[in-house]
Design a protein around this nucleic acid. Sequence first.
DNA 1: CAAATTTGTATCTTTTATAATACAGATTCA
DNA 2: TGAATCTGTATTATAAAAGATACAAATTTG
Lengths: 267, 267
Amino acid sequence: MNKPEKSLLPEGAKARQVYLSLRDQIADGRLEDGDGLPPEQKLAEIFRVSRVTIRRALDALAAAGLVVRRAGSGTTVRTSGTVGQPMAMNLATLMPQLVEMGQTTTARLLSFSYGAAPEFVASALRLEPKEQVQIATRVRSADGTPFSHLTTYVPAGIAENYTENDLATTPLFKLLELSGVQIKDAHQSVSATLAGPDVAEALGIAVGSALLSLRRVVRDVNDNGVEYLSALYRPDMFRLEMPLTRVGDDSARHWQPAIGKPPGEPA
Amino acid sequence: MNKPEKSLLPEGAKARQVYLSLRDQIADGRLEDGDGLPPEQKLAEIFRVSRVTIRRALDALAAAGLVVRRAGSGTTVRTSGTVGQPMAMNLATLMPQLVEMGQTTTARLLSFSYGAAPEFVASALRLEPKEQVQIATRVRSADGTPFSHLTTYVPAGIAENYTENDLATTPLFKLLELSGVQIKDAHQSVSATLAGPDVAEALGIAVGSALLSLRRVVRDVNDNGVEYLSALYRPDMFRLEMPLTRVGDDSARHWQPAIGKPPGEPA
DNA sequence: CAAATTTGTATCTTTTATAATACAGATTCA
DNA sequence: TGAATCTGTATTATAAAAGATACAAATTTG
């Protein structure tokens, strides 16, 4: 039942930024249900814009059902029912969960082609220059709402083992396994980026929204790169969880990710 | 030597979208070093905007050093040297690195106060409602360039053990140790968000920039929450690295973060 | 109740972004 | 060399966003 969020919002820069900024604060809990926002005049000073602009942003928030405005009283946050908690991906049990997720979510194949590996892919996977790779872009949805935008690069020799159709239904991770690829290790890198027009449309979000970006390189037992993944996630629907436990004695203590233990459960 | 990125970029919607779209394509390799962009007139048709708008986007790209424009010849992608690698924080060795980082970076204390714990802090740390906490906001810089914006909440009873001055010089993690707090475990949650006016100013970036957001809850051996950290990082200067290794036999394999091993090194 | 605060509404002006157009200068290539 | 192709520059016009201002209506507070 998610709205397309096609933003009847003011398309222009300033008002939209205010809107996005406030929406973000509501989405990630800095502003909670029932919290009162500062008065419009105050917000105008904080954001260094006119009250009219603040007004436009608040109108958009109200239209989205995130706040309630009452003359004389003020504007208050109303999130009950509207914001679902983002699904949390536990780092330690990452891959199994992704496989499971493949079963409870649906994927749509946006593009599929073969071509020379881009330089950054070739160097990450340690391929020969110009080596052919399969490039696929998919959007994954949960409950009909898209939450991730994935682009994968797989060496052509490996990609031969599954079809375009497989990609739309099965997580690439599983396909590689079925192809007999012996996966050894992976390396992930997490950062943040802004949604461009293409990704924004695919994910049903506004251009300029914040996205969690994840880059993953997977190698097989011979240290050959078998997959390069560039993933973008909606932060309101997806989050990386990392339990950490301290190990070792005083002299050489360090932190280590806790494995397979839900947070708060006794060891 | 990082530029303030104070975005002389066109703030308006259309030109910025074109800029972001092209920058994205360059950043993730769809356009590589040496590639020639379509001529401005062609781009104008592709993006359905006027050539002037395309021009503004290209100007911004050129100012950012991502493309080189030559009259008569065209616009070509130039990424060599310009794409500085963000500093990478290895998850496995997270805390020690943070301590080290405290030595090679500088911190500035933006605000420091005591007050009732906000609801989301109280529930995360399992405090009584309205319990007093110390709230401190700091900005951490490397080579004079700010890269992270940190807000910490520490129960007042614990915070008594160090001074406001300590905070400006020493990582909170270390201060807690010195205060005799016996840290047991921590839980981190990573996502993405947009820069609001305050954070944007503190980090020297444009409002609406993407930020990597990290939330951390630290508990002591008695399971009492001792720190709630909300951190925002510039994605161009900071990244989370996670090596993963597959362990176990066929029947019960799972992924586990590799500890203390630089990626690509033999086990 | 009266004063203060806050949102709602309306109007007008200013600023900024975008567009349309024309032409000059640089480069490439046959 | 000369035509074709591109970027560089300039001008003017149109549209959209943002700002300034004033006042009305609802609500809260003392």
